[in-house]
Design a binder for these strands. Structure first.
Length: 598
RNA sequence: CGCAGGGUGGAGCAGUUCGGAGUGCUCGCAGGUUUCAUAGGCCUGAGGUCGCGGGUUCAAAUCCCGCCCCUGCAACCA
């Protein structure tokens, strides 16, 4: 048994999340965590909403609310979305808790004391009316190369050239149209070049990563530059240094604080659990965390933050960067075991875009379709190692022709037949080689499916689980138990159905990490009681340190099925089943396409 | 310009590390079969110059060179 940290990317709270977001971090992390728990590991799955930064400030201004009010609104929406998908977070919190502020400031202080954070004066764009940092993406102007009038500060969409915002002719703010000022401003920088050796050593010791993630990360090490980790902005975490602490106009950069959320959420979870030091079992680089593993789940655009920035913060705080130092008060901390990055989901051939309505939000999806239908699609056809296109036609097909026709039908036909002919799980008498072969196929699935999930090859894993389903369907066709109705053949019919139901039970366990909602239902159809697949719940909590209360996602996942075959008990009553999965009418494809913008 | 990933029957993917007959998976399509089941299961079949052009080799989807197309990154976007 190991202590497994499932560190899940923090959704940005500037709007509802669409299915592209949850396909990258949500479903893969939950499948992995559920499997690891079922296999007996002690899993801590944490995340929360990422609520600081310029975009939330800008949108709050546009909506006439405070950034906190905006964050409150979308934090709740996102919590509900993730709950609806059945994502089994031990704690899904947010970055605006006082606990998070304290942990971020502790890391900042520790890094500063070890010499990895240095002040620098730079030329940066600010908004003259607010004095706030104006990120490149919020500046537009005329491209000095091609004359395109709506070039962005970082690049021209017309000619594709990279730009510096200072180069733009007639630069203006996309927020309010004013002309940006380029001013000297003092900021703190993370001294990334001071981690080149230690990061390289760490990366060289990695194995089992998806090759593209590892290559990409190594490549980043060749050109490490100091990186600003503060901004001219009022919305964010104050800088915990004398003369800076009380300044209203300087804050810690949102990405610096967001990645620290993995640690602060773990600490918050421990404090709420009644054992405030419990987080150390997943984090401490000493004996307390000796069997700890950390897996980080995100979309590919986040790789740099998880394979360079976050490890650097951990190394620097622990006193293990190239300049040495000593650990801060939290002690030396573990670096990620693996950065598990997904590629991108596109929507009907285009990028997801809220403004162009090329989007389906999680909550809208869940209003019309089952969570497990989406989970199935993402697991079977998601952007695991390639960009993948979501189309409604493919979604309906996967649901109807694979999930319903393959798995749903197997559940339904086998339980129906047993219920009708026996009213209970019949006993298995003499087992034939065919019976034994099928049972063995199902048992072998626990090894193959488990190994594939452990290696983050979930597409292959669910494919193997579905192969067991197909074998069971074939077995029923071959054995044709419906023909064994004569009195002297009835015991054989019972044996065949017992074997089929046993394999349904096994396949259900194999599919539980992917399809937890329906796995619970199938468990009950087989006469099982109690919790098979535990679900998260939304709990309103008080801030631990006196801040405003908020909703969290949490749950007790110590209950539930284990990753093993559980022998069925002959004589367990069976009722005629109701279909677990819904077949979708092909007309939904057109309906959904009409909802999309053109 | 640069870095990384991708381009495999009608669709979506494995396979490429370390060359061995276009092999495989999930579907679709055609034909057959069956009826326990949410017209679903089962069987058989058709369908591919493995992005393009060169090269190495007895042999290339796989190795090398060049090119085209798609995606992401390119660090004060999140």
């Amino acid at each position: 048994m190991s202590h497994v940290l499932a560190a899940v990317a923090w959704p940005y709270a500037n709007g509802p999340r669409h299915i592209g977001h949850v396909s990258g971090f949500g479903v893969p992390s939950d499948v992995f965590s559920r499997y690891m728990r079922m296999s007996g590991h002690d899993v801590l799955m944490v995340s929360g909403t990422d609520e600081h930064g310029t975009p939330i400030q800008v949108q709050a201004d546009a909506d006439g609310v405070t950034p906190r009010q905006l964050a409150d609104r979308y934090n709740r929406v996102i919590v509900e979305d993730l709950h609806g998908l059945g994502l089994s977070y031990d704690l899904f919190t947010r970055t605006t808790t006082r606990n998070h502020y304290a942990v971020v400031q502790e890391l900042f202080t520790g890094l500063h004391e070890n010499g990895y954070i240095v002040p620098r004066t730079t030329l940066g764009a600010i908004s003259p009316s607010t004095g706030r940092t104006l990120p490149d993406r919020y500046i537009e102007g005329t491209c000095p190369i091609c004359g395109y009038e709506s070039a962005r500060g970082d690049q021209c969409d017309n000619c594709g050239n990279q730009l510096d915002p200072e180069q733009l002719l007639n630069p203006r703010s996309r927020i309010n149209g004013e002309t940006p000022q380029f001013v000297e401003t003092e900021h703190f920088f993370l001294d990334l070049p001071a981690f080149a050796q230690s990061l390289g050593k760490w990366l060289d010791a990695r194995d089992g990563w998806r090759p593209n993630v590892l290559k990409f990360s190594r490549n980043l090490l060749d050109d490490l530059q100091p990186r600003a980790i503060t901004r001219d902005l009022e919305w964010g975490i104050p800088i915990p240094l004398d003369d800076w602490r009380d300044r209203g106009d300087k804050r810690i950069y949102v990405w610096f604080d967001a990645v620290i959320g993995y640690l602060s959420a773990s600490i918050e979870w421990a404090r709420r659990s009644g054992d405030p030091d419990a987080w150390r079992r997943w984090w401490s680089a000493d004996a307390q965390g000796k069997d700890a593993l950390g897996y980080y789940f995100m979309g590919k655009d986040n790789i740099v933050f998880h394979s360079v920035i976050w490890p650097s913060l951990l190394l620097g705080y622990s006193g293990s960067g190239d300049k040495g130092g000593s650990p801060g008060s939290l002690g030396a901390l573990n670096l990620p075991t693996e950065v598990v990055s997904s590629e991108y989901l596109t929507m009907e051939g285009r990028k997801f875009s809220s403004s162009r309505k090329v989007v389906i939000y999680v909550r809208d999806f869940l209003e019309r379709y089952d969570a497990d239908a989406l989970r199935y699609f993402i697991a079977a056809a998601g952007p695991e190692s390639n960009d993948t296109d979501f189309t409604w036609a493919e979604f309906v097909r996967r649901n109807n022709d694979e999930l319903v026709a393959g798995w749903g039908n197997l559940v339904n036909r086998s339980i129906s037949m047993a219920a009708k002919n026996f009213g209970e799980i019949p006993p298995a008498l003499d087992l034939t080689p065919d019976d034994l072969a099928l049972l063995e196929t199902a048992k072998a699935g626990f090894v193959t499916v488990g190994e594939l999930i452990g290696k983050h090859r979930q597409k292959a894993a669910i494919g193997e689980a579905m192969r067991v389903v197909a074998e069971a369907n074939k077995y029923l066709s071959d054995q044709a138990p419906w023909k064994l109705k004569a009195a002297e053949e009835k015991p054989r019919m019972g044996t065949v159905l017992h074997v089929a139901l046993q394999v349904v039970s096994d396949a259900n366990t194999l599919l539980t990490p992917f399809l937890p909602h329906s796995a619970q239902k199938v468990h009950e159809l087989l006469g099982g009681t109690g919790v098979h697949a535990p679900m998260p719940s939304i709990v309103e909590v008080e801030d631990l340190d006196g801040g405003p209360g908020y909703p969290v996602l949490t749950g007790d996942y110590t209950v539930g099925a284990r990753w093993e075959s559980v022998p069925l008990v002959a004589g367990t009553p069976l009722a005629a089943p109701k279909p677990v999965f819904r077949k979708l009418d092909p007309s939904v494809v057109e309906e959904e396409l009409e909802r999309l913008g053109s």
